[in-house]
């Protein structure tokens, strides 16, 4: 179970005349194993929503609960533990560490877990094999293609086996063929029971999701598809 319930989430940046409302009274429920796409124009609040769902950005008001855990009532360390156990992040620009090889990048989330190195390596190699990258495990990020880097980023996001995957424009920096491969990969991960929440501009890739949320000026538009 990893049901996400957001209730009246609002986020305001700045104060007084300089105040900007990024998210306005957004409520939603994401059920376990769902694939949800969040769409909207630039500045519509979709990345803010994703960061709040990812326990990275404290909302100005509203609540977020995951498995009955009120996320923003947790302290910083508890929220870090929540992210480690529940969430996997896929960033638009990959954010791989250039000085670590592919295998080491995938193992980053495991670095703070008390487990023998061999086991960690075994887990990371298994995930890389799933992504078709086990042969390139010892290469640096600069030595592989953009699509492969994205797959490494996804491997890093799932190596901890989190129930929820949050992806911010995962196809934003990829050509259409590579982007389609990445979407297939996300769909496969979802098919295995993982909840996937993906922010995208692309109608084409949003169709991989079972449900699409549309945001404009920080508000949910209409009823979810």
């Amino acid at each position: 179970m990893s049901e996400i319930i957001a209730t009246d989430l609002s986020k305001q940046y700045g104060q007084g005349d300089a105040a900007a409302i990024a998210l306005d009274q957004v409520s939603l429920r994401i059920t376990t194993g769902e694939f949800l796409a969040v769409m909207g124009q630039s500045g519509s609040g979709k990345s803010t929503l994703l960061s709040i769902l990812g326990a990275l950005n404290t909302p100005t008001s509203g609540t977020l609960t995951v498995d009955d855990l009120n996320i923003y009532e947790l302290n910083q360390d508890q929220r870090a533990d929540f992210r480690r156990e529940y969430l996997g992040f896929v960033f638009q620009s990959f954010h791989l560490l250039p000085y670590l090889n592919v295998l080491e990048n995938v193992m980053i989330p495991l670095a703070v877990i008390a487990e023998p190195r061999k086991n960690k390596e075994k887990r990371a190699l298994a995930v890389l094999a799933e992504m078709g990258l086990d042969k390139k495990a010892r290469r640096l990020p600069s030595e592989i293609s953009g699509g492969e880097q994205e797959r490494v980023a996804i491997a890093r996001a799932v190596v901890n086996d989190p129930p929820i995957l949050l992806a911010d424009e995962p196809t934003g920096n990829l050509d259409s063929k590579t982007a389609a491969e990445v979407m297939d990969l996300l769909a496969r991960l979802n098919a295995k029971g993982r909840t996937v929440v993906m922010v995208t501009h692309s109608e084409e890739y949003a169709r991989y999701a079972g449900r699409i949320l549309r945001l404009a000026d920080g508000r949910l538009l209409g009823k979810p598809d």
Partner: peptide
Amino acid sequence: ASEIGVFRAIGYRRGH
């Protein structure tokens, strides 16, 4: 900064 952001996003505590 971005590297530290990644560490924190994937669940590193401040102490880590």
